[in-house]
Structure formats: C-alpha cells, structure tokens
Computed example of a mutant assay.
Amino acid sequence: MMGLPFESGMLRSYFIAGTQDIKDKHKTLEEVVKQALEAGITAFQYREKGPTSLTGDAKAKMAQTLRELCADYQVPFIVDDDVALAVQTNADGVHVGQKDERVTQVLKEIGETMFVGLSCDTKAQIEIANQTVGISYIGSGPVYPTGSKADADPVIGVDSLANLVKASQLPVVAIGGITEENIQELPKTGVAGTAVISMIAQSEDVFRTVKTMNTTFEK
C-alpha cells in the first residue's frame, strides 16, 4: 500500500520526537504529538533513541499509535532509521542518517512504497545524494548548537546551510538547535522548512510554536 506521496511542503514544520524527548512528567509523547498535529505540523518523524527509549513491542506499539494519529490528520508519518518498523506500521516515509543503514540499501528494501529522507551535512554528501535516485529530501544540520541529540555532528551554521541548499537538487529541511527566535534567519537560506525536536517537545505553547514555524515558511 502506498503512503502519502512526498511534497516539499511537508518539510515546513517537521516535528521529530520519541519518548525520550518529553521531559514534562505530566505529558505523554502521544499527547504532545496530538497537540502538534492539531496545531498544524506538516510532518512527524518517530525517533526513539537513547538510554531511556522504548524497545521491542513497546516501541512497535507506540509507533502504531502515532501512525494512526498522523493518519487521522493526513500528516505524513516518518520512521527514523528502522526500515522494519516503517514497513510494519505502513509508514509514509523513512529517514536515514549517514551513520545508519546505507540509503541505497534502504531504497532497495522499500521500493516505491514510501519516501526516503537522508541527513547530509557536507557538500560531498549532498553530491552523492544528487546522484542517488529515489531520495525525496535532505535533512541538514545541526544549524545551531543542540542538546537533543547526544550524537550530534558539529554545528554547520547558517552560511554553510545556504551553500548546501544551493548544491542540493532536492528540497532541504534545516535541523538542530532551532528556536522561535533564530528560525527567522532561515528562510533566506532557501530551506523548505525546519525540523525540530525540543522546540515543540518542550514548548509551553505548542500552538504558538507551530504557528511560528508555519508562518516563517509560508507557501
């Protein structure tokens, strides 16, 4: 079964989260994702990584719940670096990092059933992506220092981001350390939107945060 076809507008307000990102003990991941969907996010990526994250059946169950939530709102559900889980939940997309399973292998495994995003933070990586048929979009960063990823790469900054966008034949979504203040610097780089973890997961006002993302990158 085919999921939602990829379009670059999906990158405008792209929320990434797993249970490890919900720091407020009174909220569940499911509640935060539902709120973000109601607020108007354009994509959701389930990224369950870290020492406290779910594994096995609990992870599969959570993925299925979030998958159904996204389907209710007609928002693409993307799985981070887990092709088996993406297939099992009939996800719309799968996101692959440079350190994860090779993107060519992922493309072979999923065929035409879902779209694929790839993390690229150097020009060389972008050039390889340009030559790889089947990738739909690029995630580039971290643009700013970030505390959400223990394994984050060195910060690339706004100017380098603009150069990567120029080099890329695919739409690029910016990631890493983005806040409601610094997001204003990003439209001029040419990115299609921003992907955030803590900006939404730890927001005191998810509606305001998502609105800021969407209005910064109006169609």
Rank of each mutant, 00 (worst) to 15 (best):
M2G: 09
M2L: 15
F6T: 03
S8R: 13
S8Y: 10
M10E: 01
F15N: 04
F15K: 03
D21S: 14
H26C: 10
Q35T: 14
A36E: 06
T42C: 07
Q45S: 06
E48I: 02
K49H: 02
T55D: 04
D57G: 02
A58Y: 08
K61G: 06
K61C: 07
K61W: 09
M62V: 10
M62E: 15
Q64N: 03
L69Q: 04
V75N: 00
D80F: 05
D82S: 07
D92Y: 04
V96S: 06
Q98V: 07
D100M: 07
E101M: 15
T104P: 11
Q105Y: 13
G111N: 04
M114G: 01
F115H: 01
G117N: 03
C120Y: 04
D121A: 10
K123L: 14
I126G: 06
Q131S: 15
V133M: 13
P142W: 07
V143K: 04
G147V: 13
A152M: 05
I156T: 04
D159V: 12
D159L: 10
N163M: 13
L164I: 15
V165Y: 05
K166M: 11
Q169L: 11
P171H: 02
G177H: 07
G177M: 05
T179A: 08
E185W: 11
T189M: 07
S198W: 08
K211N: 15
N214I: 10
T215H: 15
F217W: 11
F217D: 08
K219N: 14
